[in-house]
């Protein structure tokens, strides 16, 4: 019983701390920079940061989803990734492009093609 209480106490404080830390990272910019939305440096970041972040997210996660050992050298994720790029440049239909990469990736991973 005592142990159970202690466990619940630990778990609830743990969750509270996790919530606080995560929410802090999200709200801090709005608390400290709210009155500077028209500042040119904020506008500059707002204009270019999303594109750069998108590119880096794509690259970092693409790298992590690939098998880099020989003889695959990343092709198990690079080929599906390239398909996404090609299909998106061709039809510009987000869902179609995503399916065009995800289905081959699943097939490759599940069948162990590489």
């Amino acid at each position: 019983m005592v142990e159970n209480l202690f466990q619940n106490y630990y778990l609830s404080s743990f969750i509270a701390v996790t919530v606080l830390a995560t929410f802090a990272t999200r709200i801090i910019p709005f608390v400290f920079f709210e009155h500077h939305t028209e500042h040119p440096v904020i506008k500059h970041l707002g204009r270019y940061l999303p594109a750069a972040v998108m590119a880096l997210l794509a690259i970092v996660f693409l790298q992590r989803s690939a098998t880099w050992s020989l003889p695959v050298v990343g092709l198990d994720a690079l080929i599906p990734g390239a398909l996404v790029v090609l299909v998106h440049l061709w039809r510009r239909n987000a869902l179609l492009s995503i399916a065009a990469g995800t289905l081959p990736y699943m097939a490759i991973q599940q069948a162990g093609l590489f």
């Binding site: 989803s65 996404v84 998106h88 492009s97 990469g101 995800t102 990736y105």
Partner: peptide, 13 residues
């Protein structure tokens, strides 16, 4: 297995 590639594909798109 592998369906989470949808998120990477989304980032690429």
């Amino acid at each position: 297995t592998g369906i989470e590639f949808a998120l990477i594909a989304l980032f690429i798109v």
